[in-house]
Amino acid sequence: MTEQGVLRASIVVTFLVATFGIVFGLLSGSFSIAFDGVYSLADAGMTTVALGVSHLIVQSAKRDALSGKLRNRFTMGFWHLEPIVLGLNGTILIIVAIYALINALLSIQGGGRELEFGFAIAYAATTLLICLVMAAIDWRANRAIQSDFLKLDIHSWVMSGAISGALLVAFAIGYGVEDTMLEWISPYIDPVALAVISAAIIPIPIGTVRQAVADMLLLTPPDLKEQVDGVAKETVARHGFLGYRAYVAKVGRAKQIEIYFIVARDGPARRLEEWDRIRDEIGEAIGDESHNRWLTIAFTTDREWAE
């Protein structure tokens, strides 16, 4: 199963769950269920965008897969779109959760709302099962694919499942206290559940947003820089170069690496094929030779070219 195939299936199911949530939210009078549907709808919209970006990234690695105009406009590839989409997705989910939290607090202050717990329990149980199944499918597929988009999609399904599970518990409590001395808490079940869930899920996308911002700012991953430095130092020692400069960044799923080796002005002349063999050695030592690695290796006698 491909990344795009998994995302397509996730989009279809998410739209169905969102519609299911909004309809049941109206039928049961539950703002928390309606929020769950709107949350799923926002997630489905961003997953659709993620699918488009994933398609562009994969197609850009194939010769003649893109139109000439598009290829000429994006000669450096489409990797930079991935952290933008991930950051935007996480930000939207945070905003939606904050909005829901504010509405829940206002509802609590207003005395809560009446709720049809039978519809609510049916919705929460069904949605919880769907979320668990989709999270398992995504997780199994991503063991081989290793996609940040699928990781985010897994998180989204887990978050949606947590919301449904919490709602199921809350609605079961509300159903249980009907016609008892604790029935006065029934109107508060829905807004309190929504407030707790919203407050709990707000921090979850923060890690994704932070990583996306780091990628957009081209921050250097320490582990990747250490690996590249190790290979470059070994190359300098083996071939008698004067030094090197390495520039490393991670942009979405792509690793961008530039290494400039300082060569002595009076060093022995080498054929171009020999310089290419040295490049091949360095590339093999760095590893991960795929279309997601952008590796530039240059040799110069002028240190200013390497700065």
Rank of each mutant, 00 (worst) to 15 (best):
1 M>W: 10
4 Q>N: 07
6 V>A: 14
7 L>V: 06
9 A>T: 15
13 V>C: 06
15 F>I: 14
19 T>V: 15
21 G>M: 05
23 V>L: 08
27 L>Y: 11
29 G>T: 09
30 S>D: 07
34 A>S: 14
34 A>F: 11
34 A>H: 06
39 Y>S: 07
40 S>L: 11
41 L>I: 09
41 L>G: 14
42 A>G: 12
44 A>I: 06
49 V>I: 09
58 V>W: 06
58 V>T: 13
59 Q>L: 13
60 S>L: 05
62 K>D: 05
63 R>G: 02
66 L>G: 05
69 K>T: 10
70 L>I: 14
72 N>L: 02
73 R>C: 00
76 M>A: 05
77 G>T: 06
79 W>F: 12
80 H>V: 07
80 H>Q: 10
82 E>P: 04
84 I>L: 14
91 T>W: 03
93 L>N: 09
102 I>W: 14
110 G>V: 01
114 E>L: 05
115 L>R: 11
119 F>H: 12
120 A>T: 13
121 I>C: 10
122 A>Y: 15
127 T>H: 06
128 L>M: 09
135 A>S: 12
138 D>G: 04
141 A>N: 05
142 N>C: 06
147 S>E: 04
147 S>C: 01
147 S>D: 03
156 S>N: 11
156 S>W: 13
159 M>Q: 08
165 G>D: 03
168 L>M: 11
171 F>V: 10
177 V>Q: 02
179 D>S: 13
182 L>N: 03
182 L>K: 07
183 E>G: 03
183 E>P: 00
184 W>P: 01
187 P>I: 09
188 Y>G: 03
189 I>Y: 12
192 V>N: 06
193 A>W: 09
196 V>W: 06
198 S>Y: 08
204 I>V: 15
207 G>T: 13
207 G>N: 14
207 G>W: 07
215 D>F: 08
216 M>N: 14
217 L>I: 08
217 L>T: 12
219 L>Q: 15
219 L>T: 15
220 T>C: 13
221 P>A: 06
222 P>W: 04
222 P>K: 09
224 L>K: 12
228 V>Q: 11
237 A>Y: 00
244 Y>H: 02
250 K>L: 00
250 K>T: 07
254 A>C: 09
255 K>I: 00
258 E>T: 11
259 I>T: 04
259 I>S: 01
266 D>P: 02
268 P>R: 15
269 A>G: 03
270 R>Q: 10
272 L>G: 01
273 E>A: 10
274 E>Y: 07
276 D>N: 10
280 D>V: 12
284 E>Q: 14
289 E>P: 03
291 H>R: 09
293 R>K: 13
294 W>P: 00
297 I>M: 00
299 F>W: 02
302 D>F: 02
305 W>E: 01
